[in-house]
């Protein structure tokens, strides 16, 4: 399909990039990505996926904007306080790039939502902030065979990984690292442990980069690999994953088992 002058000019700096080009740009334009969470990780992911021209982006978040979000959730400003995050994010992204389609889901990602919406998208991005949702997303992606770009932060460190992508004949998921979630009070949330605004920005951008690599084929995807990054020192630690002997035992093996699993209880 012939692209408009506007399209060519908007993405010109990417199109002329060696190793990228109009072919990679077209792949982005034809891609559909679902971002679950419009918070610290979600905001930078969404901003850059919209900017580079991912054709269709879904945003899932049930929260409203709070003042304490504004040190890091950079899609929002003080006039958005109290408003629905997914809806405001979608409005701002649509203004940012009128060539991409943005859909807001102002709701939680539960099993019903996952089974209904995940199949439509090419890539799922986990930008959430709690284990119950993370395990739900992981299990849905395994069952529905969707690539999952995982990102998470803890104080000054962040983790990024790509799951459910076949590499060297193996496709692994989050339960191959942590077959069962930690207990409810075992791990700090951002509210309890704190977070410097820049950190989720960096990790979110790494997630966006992984999604772009998967879609366009450039670079080396972090498939079956957990990268932990500490921007205080720029030290990073990479873990090459293998199949965990207990991951299958804890994964729901059918859609029905998935639907019946109580993720809130599992992570409490």
């Amino acid at each position: 399909m012939e692209k408009s002058k506007e399209y060519i000019l908007r993405y010109q700096r990417q199109i002329i990039l060696n190793g990228f080009g109009i072919v990679a740009q077209e792949k982005l334009a034809n891609a559909k990505i679902l971002v679950i969470g419009a918070g610290g990780l979600g905001c930078p992911v969404l901003q850059y996926l919209a900017a580079v021209g991912v054709g269709e982006i879904g945003i899932v978040d049930n929260d409203q904007v709070a003042l304490s979000n504004l040190n890091r959730q950079i899609l929002f400003d003080q006039e958005d306080i109290g408003k629905d995050k997914a809806i405001i994010a979608a409005e701002k992204l649509a203004k940012q790039n009128n060539l991409v389609k943005i859909i807001a889901f102002q709701q939680n990602c539960n099993q019903h939502f996952a089974l209904e919406q995940f199949p439509y998208y090419d890539i799922i991005i986990d930008a959430t902030d709690n284990f119950a949702t993370r395990y739900l997303i992981n299990d849905a992606c395994v069952l529905l065979k969707k690539p999952l770009v995982f990102g998470a932060i803890s104080q000054f460190e962040g983790q990024v990984a790509v799951f459910n992508v076949l590499k060297d004949g193996v496709s692994l998921n989050y339960r191959d690292l942590f077959p069962v979630p930690p207990k409810g009070d075992e791990v700090l949330s951002c509210a309890d442990g704190g977070v410097l605004g820049v950190l989720p920005g960096m990790i979110g951008l790494m997630q966006a980069m992984e999604a772009i690599k998967i879609i366009t084929g450039i670079g080396k995807v972090l498939a079956n690999e957990l990268l932990t990054y500490n921007p205080l020192t720029y030290e990073n630690y990479s873990i090459k994953m293998v199949k965990h002997p207990e991951s299958e035992k804890h994964l729901p093996s059918t859609l029905e088992a998935f639907t019946n699993l109580n993720y809130q209880w599992l992570c409490s």
């Binding site: 993370r134 932060i153 803890s154 930690p182 989720p200 293998v242």
Partner: peptide
């Protein structure tokens, strides 16, 4: 995994799950 043998001068990491976002 359980079968992994630790070589001399190995560098070991203990990595917990992170959940923040």
């Amino acid at each position: 995994t359980y079968e992994t043998l630790i070589p001399e001068h190995a560098k070991i990491a203990l990595m917990p799950p992170f959940s923040g976002g």
